[in-house]
């Protein structure tokens, strides 16, 4: 869970920063997208490294989902009957929504890949023109809303996930422990804010 989480966390951070090129105009982001395909050339053929990265990510997603599923099943089995009343004392919203938030994010990722990588269901999909795909895509209000909701969920998921990571891997040192929550909050906010800014910018007409 933690190890696949680190891989996926690395990806979402990179993905968000990469996408900030949206604000530098069509050329910058399209060149960046093309660069991703040509990474490793001429030693490796075009797209090769991209597919390696995709394979690693896919594996990480698989491991992440599988561990989530097994721990969830284990936990449900461990509860010997439901409480008539159960009152949380410390578990915050983020902790309590890891499972359903995770499901929402998984659904979103599937939609997102179909929409912006393969163009399935996208009204004006142009394979090489990332900029226009994004802008046209977010001009559909329901899609933008879904995108924003999913990224807020991602923020919460990252917040609890990052903090948990320290616990699960035993990165515990009294001198630095108070930074763990700060780190988790900061990265969760940065990733969520960066990602949510794209549809907002499109809807507000800042990015056309």
């Amino acid at each position: 869970m933690a190890v696949s989480g680190i891989v996926l966390f690395g990806f979402v951070v990179g993905h968000m920063f990469g996408n900030l090129k949206l604000y530098q105009g069509p050329e910058a982001i399209n060149v960046y997208a093309e660069h991703l395909r040509t990474m490793g050339e001429p030693i490796l053929p075009r797209n090769a490294l991209l597919w390696v990265v995709r394979a690693v990510l896919l594996a990480a997603v698989g491991v992440h989902l599988w561990s989530a599923w097994t721990t969830t099943r284990q936990s449900w089995a461990a509860r010997g009957g439901r409480y008539e009343v159960w009152t949380p004392v410390q578990a915050d919203y983020a902790a309590r929504t890891m499972r359903w938030g995770g499901v929402l994010i998984a659904l979103f990722v599937a939609f997102h890949i179909a929409d912006l990588t393969f163009g399935t269901g996208h009204p004006q999909f142009a394979p090489a023109d990332v900029y226009s795909n994004v802008v046209r895509g977010f001009q559909r209000v329901p899609v933008a809303a879904f995108y924003m909701a999913a990224n807020v969920a991602l923020g919460f998921h990252l917040y609890h996930g990052l903090w948990s990571l320290f616990q699960s891997l035993g990165w515990n040192n009294p001198t630095f422990n108070h930074w763990r929550r700060t780190f988790a909050t900061a990265f969760a906010c940065i990733v969520a804010a960066g990602n949510v800014s794209f549809p907002i910018s499109v809807l507000m007409g800042w990015v056309k």
């Binding site: 721990t71 284990q74 936990s75 449900w76 089995a77 461990a78 509860r79 010997g80 949380p88 004392v89 410390q90 578990a91 902790a95 309590r96 890891m98 609890h160 903090w163 948990s164 616990q167 699960s168």
Partner: peptide
């Protein structure tokens, strides 16, 4: 044993 797995809710520490 039939325990579940820890997902760092923190409820245990609180109670």
């Amino acid at each position: 044993e039939a325990f579940g797995s820890c997902t760092n809710y923190g409820e245990c520490e609180a109670v």
